[in-house]
Design a protein around this nucleic acid. Structure first.
Length: 474
RNA sequence: GUCCCCAUCGUCUAGUGGCCUAGGACGCCGGCCUCUCACGCCGGUAACACGGGUUCGACUCCCGUUGGGGACGCCA
């Protein structure tokens, strides 16, 4: 029997980083075991589910590179089947109608809370054998066994046992006739032949309820693996408060999907002392049964480091669209050509932890003027004392027959010798004038990438700047 | 409150009774490289929550305490 897993998000919001991790683990585990990865949209809550959320979740999965083998399927399309199952449950005495009002339920819970009991349904209608009149508001509840316990070998958590006495009679069908989560999940997991349910550990308490439905229907119970949750820096379950935004936000921020996946996979899982993994490696190595059991805290600093690694390991061609995307966001117009970007990318790959950072660092190449200069850099390196050498260098460059690295180096060296300067004493002022900042790729690489025309223009611009400065201070 | 789960450097982790004077990675600090910034390299900082057992021997097994997390909806 082949492995079948499912990722089952509810479309009530975007796909955040925690959901992405669940999807990733399902996907990787399934790839490793050559199973089928099913995507199922849990939209039984018609009040809160939206089409936009579905679209954003799909887009997120697509960006991460976690395509489902089957689906997306929508639970809202399966309503008739859920209700059919409920009829069977009713007929076999595993379910019953309940006419308790919300007010009564609230009062019961309130009472239980004050007496220190676990808030739960008190079974008021359980043995009432009610026959509801047409139009009479009621829900259908599952008749949970009160004795015994549910025990399962969790793929991640080990054996978990929960006494049936801890459970109450959950609602299967709402008073508006719509099915609830626990019913829909059990029916779909069975109908879709899911053999391993991988989900967050916040679902542990739902598992015995779902297993009861399976048993009442005489279905084979799937295996379960409850993964530890992702926490924010305060140690609590990741939420919007922690900036748990859409995974697509990470694309905006210049992260590579391979890096995000790599980072996420290392949260709770390890393979020897290896830190960097390609998707292909993860698909081969990752196994949910090797997961740890304690929650992990999301650490952006490490994500940044991993992202830098993946940026360095990528080919310029792979990065090209991402960089173009970020440059466009910076308002670079016209957009540089692919050839242009591919040529400069290697210089910036080791210098950026994100594509956003990379775009900022190579921006100087695509704008008309880098004025005004970064203040600190200009103050430190662009002093009146540097003017003569700068002017001489500009003249020497001007006279160059060809804009080659060798020629540039020779002219540079000659200027150095003529003025008795060290490399740094001249390179830094030139760098500021060329890029507007005190940091850039090597000075000859920078000159080469900028090209003759822009370089010469910026040197003149720099000299003019120094002259202006002279006047204001004089 | 009740039930369930967890507990090694700040963070992610290795560790499955002796190989641990606890290893790696991120971060941080220092150094090297060097025209700047990165990258890279070298070094440093820093942890087995606590208390009982079990054992010749516990980070590793058991119990308890403490701490943290999750769940307790006509949400999923």
């Amino acid at each position: 029997m082949t492995l079948r897993t499912r990722f089952a998000p509810s479309p009530t919001g975007f796909l955040h980083i925690g959901g992405a991790r669940t999807a990733l683990f399902c996907y990787l585990h399934t790839r490793r075991h050559q199973g089928a990865f099913v995507l199922r949209i849990e939209d039984t809550d018609t009040e809160r589910s939206t089409q936009e959320a579905v679209a954003v979740i799909l887009e997120g999965l697509n960006w991460l590179g976690l395509p489902p083998d089957e689906g997306p399927f929508f639970q809202s399309h399966h309503t008739a089947r859920y209700l059919e199952v409920v009829q069977t449950l009713l007929a076999t005495g595993h379910a019953y109608p309940c006419v308790c009002s919300r007010e009564r339920l609230d009062a019961v819970r309130e009472q239980q809370r004050t007496t220190g009991d676990k808030p739960r349904y008190d079974g008021h209608c359980r043995e009432a054998h009610l026959t509801v009149a047409p139009g009479q508001p009621h829900v259908i509840r599952f008749k949970t066994p009160q004795e015994g316990e549910i025990l399962w070998e969790d793929k991640i958590q080990g054996s978990i046992r929960i006494a049936n006495g801890e459970l109450d009679d959950l609602i299967l069908v709402r008073s508006d006739g719509s099915p609830t989560y626990n019913l829909a999940v059990a029916v779909d997991d069975h109908d879709m032949g899911i053999s391993l349910v991988i989900r967050g550990e916040d679902h542990i308490s739902n598992t015995p309820r779902q297993i009861h439905v399976f048993k009442a229907m005489g279905w084979a119970v799937p295996e379960y693996g409850h993964m530890p949750l992702l926490h924010g820096s305060d140690g609590a379950k990741l939420s919007k408060r922690h900036g748990a935004v859409s995974v697509l936000q990470y694309r905006e921020e210049g992260f590579l999907p391979s890096a995000v996946n790599n980072y996420l996979a290392r949260l709770g899982w390890s393979h020897g002392e290896q830190e960097i993994f390609t998707m292909a490696e993860l698909e081969q190595l990752f196994d949910v049964s090797a997961l740890g059991r304690s929650a992990a805290i999301f650490d952006r600093a490490k994500l940044l480091w991993i992202n830098g690694h993946h940026i360095r390991a990528a080919t310029p061609e792979q990065l090209l669209p991402e960089l173009a995307f970020q440059l466009a966001r910076l308002g670079i117009d016209p957009a540089p050509s692919s050839e242009q970007l591919a040529a400069i990318l290697p210089e910036f790959q080791p210098r950026a932890a994100t594509l956003v950072e990379m775009a900022q660092k190579c921006r100087f190449l695509f704008i008309d003027s880098v004025l005004p200069y970064e203040e600190k850099a200009a103050r430190k390196h662009l002093t009146p004392a540097t003017r003569p050498a700068l002017a001489a260098l500009a003249a020497a460059f001007q006279a160059l027959p060809a804009w080659t690295t060798t020629a540039l180096e020779e002219a540079f060296q000659a200027t150095l010798t003529a003025f008795g300067l060290t490399m740094g004493q001249l390179a830094q002022p030139v760098r500021v004038v060329l890029t507007g900042s005190g940091a850039s790729p090597g000075i000859f690489e920078t000159l080469g990438m900028l090209g003759r025309e822009k370089s010469l223009h910026r040197l003149q611009e720099g000299l003019a700047h120094l002259d202006r400065q002279e006047q204001t201070t004089a």
